[in-house]
Design a binder for these strands. Structure first.
Length: 489
RNA sequence: CGGGGCGUAGCGUAGCCCGGUAUCGCGCCUGCUUUGGGAGCAGGAGGUCGCCGGUUCGAAUCCGGCCGCCCCGACCA
């Protein structure tokens, strides 16, 4: 057994652990194009589960899917001043087509506000046409300097919601509602607790009135912005003449929101739950929930255990079952590979449950069930699998969230600390520091330069400290907000 | 775009300083024996040493240029 079978440990080098794990668990691979990655079936399977769950939630909140083009006329980008300033530097631009120089260059969408609101403008005349509640599943391209698998790639997959409303307040409700949807998805499906809140101006989306976000804490105590929701105000409506006649018969500009989450969440999943043995996937998002490993000595035993394994898999996972009763089972019937090697294989890939079935188990009509998250192992009778597995999977899902939440709390600092102590925290263990801020962007900038930490958000009320800080951590002046400081991805 | 590192079989590497046709491990193929925590033995396949040029009788090795990747910064979902 050689050392290259062991994963770099999180403690030794977190960043190397992450890269190695993503590659070795076959979530993704580097591609021939710089900064772009190939999402392999195991990774894409997670994305498909994410899409399905989120899409259901979007539909249940009244949204519809549509699709807008990948190419955006370059002139569209520049119609909203702040937006063009924010995105122009990172745009890929098509200058040639069909062997000819294009009359107007085409930007490959970095985000679709401009093209979508230009179309909304055609479709909206009256307040009766509002609201428009659209979503699209798409790829976008941003010319990033430095890329990392899932966390920042030049092309990534995401969903972008785009809505238009008659009033500011309606748009505000929508932006907050979708932030809540994200939070519920991240906690309920990813088992990843998040802090929701408002971005400061420096971190606000280019062209938005207000940006709300979900911030998660990774195991190296750095923050990951996992989702954003923007109240765009009337900025884009004015740029694209998205106007309507209101009940009073006056022309008015619509109010827009946009909101998105991306394949970056897969990186968050890895860094939230992974351990030194590999991935740990939450039952709701894992492509395979239970892997069955048949064990044998003789050919007869091989045939018998594989037959039983397949029968169980068929019974639990049949497509004839309604979706919510179906368990995603895989039988690892590869010959010539010892059971132990299979255990390592599936542990690396994060499959929540493993069922071992050997000759002894056939006799007793039971198997050994091992949990990936806790590594507990116990016997379970075949005839209770169908009844008990869903409960066990739910338990794993819940336990993973509890564990992640405990880690988030353990690495959050709420007691008042001095700026010097803060610097030590950021140089050392890191974490989320709740502290007062005087509201001055210059202070935010200075802290960033001195500590690499940024204000992740002004947390929503339910995340704030019982006793609000009264003074700014840096200047000692009266605090305008309680904010969360952390280094971020 | 600045700093650092690295490109040798599918993967990871030795060799490079000191020039003579490439080492080892994993993986892969065949056979036999194995299989309840990473199997053993035997045999075998697989290489334009990132690319281009130079020096030399001879270059993975020395020199010049280029390309790519990773890490750390600046910038960003």
């Amino acid at each position: 057994m050689s050392d290259d079978k062991k994963l770099t440990s999180r403690g030794d080098n977190f960043s190397e652990w992450y890269n190695e794990l993503v590659l070795r668990s076959e979530l993704a691979d580097y591609s021939p194009v710089r900064g772009c990655m190939v999402i392999r079936p195991h990774g894409y399977g997670i994305w498909e589960r994410m899409q399905r769950a989120l899409d259901d939630m979007f539909k249940a909140t009244g949204h519809v899917n549509a699709y807008f083009p990948l190419f955006i006329p370059e002139s569209f980008l520049s119609k909203e001043a702040e937006h063009v300033e924010g995105f122009a530097p990172e745009c890929a631009v098509v200058t040639m087509g069909g062997g000819k120089v294009l009359e107007e260059r085409l930007v490959i969408r970095p985000t679709s506000e401009t093209i979508i609101y230009s179309m909304f403008a055609k479709w909206v005349q009256s307040y009766r046409d509002l609201p428009l509640l659209y979503n699209q599943w798409a790829n976008v391209v941003r010319w990033e300097m430095r890329t990392r698998l899932f966390l920042r790639t030049m092309e990534f997959l995401w969903q972008e919601g785009h809505t238009a409303h008659a009033t500011h307040d309606e748009a505000e409700v929508e932006a907050r509602k979708m932030l809540g949807v994200y939070r519920e998805f991240m906690e309920g499906h990813m088992a990843m607790p998040v802090i929701t809140g408002l971005k400061t101006d420096s971190e606000r989306f280019a062209g938005a009135l207000r940006t709300y976000c979900c911030e998660a804490m990774m195991q190296d105590n750095k923050a990951l912005q996992a989702g954003t929701s923007h109240n765009l105000g009337q900025n884009f409506a004015k740029a694209f003449d998205l106007s309507f006649q209101n009940e009073q018969g006056e022309q008015a500009f619509a109010w827009n929101t946009s909101w998105g989450v991306s394949t970056r969440m897969i990186g968050g999943l890895v860094m939230t739950h992974g351990d030194d043995a590999g991935l740990r996937l939450p039952p709701r998002l894992t492509p395979i929930q239970v892997v069955i490993v048949p064990i044998w000595k003789t050919d007869d035993e091989r045939d018998a255990t594989i037959a039983v394994a397949k029968r169980i898999a068929e019974e639990l996972g049949s497509f004839k079952r309604p979706d919510h009763e179906r368990i995603r089972v895989h039988v690892d019937d590869r010959v010539g590979i010892k059971p132990g090697a299979k255990y390592y294989h599936w542990e690396l890939r994060g499959i929540p449950l493993r069922l071992e079935i050997g000759p002894r188990d056939l006799a007793s009509q039971s198997g050994m069930l091992a949990r990936r998250d806790t590594r507990e192992k116990r016997a379970i009778a075949f005839d209770v699998l169908r009844a008990e597995l869903p409960e066990i999977l739910d338990q794993i899902q819940a336990d993973m969230l509890t564990a992640a939440r405990a880690r988030l709390e353990a690495n959050s600092i709420r007691q008042r600390i001095s700026y010097d102590e803060f610097k030590n925290v950021m140089e050392g263990p890191g974490g989320f520091v709740y502290a007062g801020w005087n509201g001055d962007p210059a202070i935010e900038q200075r802290v960033k330069e001195e500590t690499k930490a940024t204000i992740r958000c002004i947390p929503d009320p339910e995340f704030r400290s019982p006793i609000a800080p009264t003074t700014c951590m840096v200047t000692g002046e009266p605090a305008k907000h309680e904010v969360i400081w952390a280094r971020a991805y």
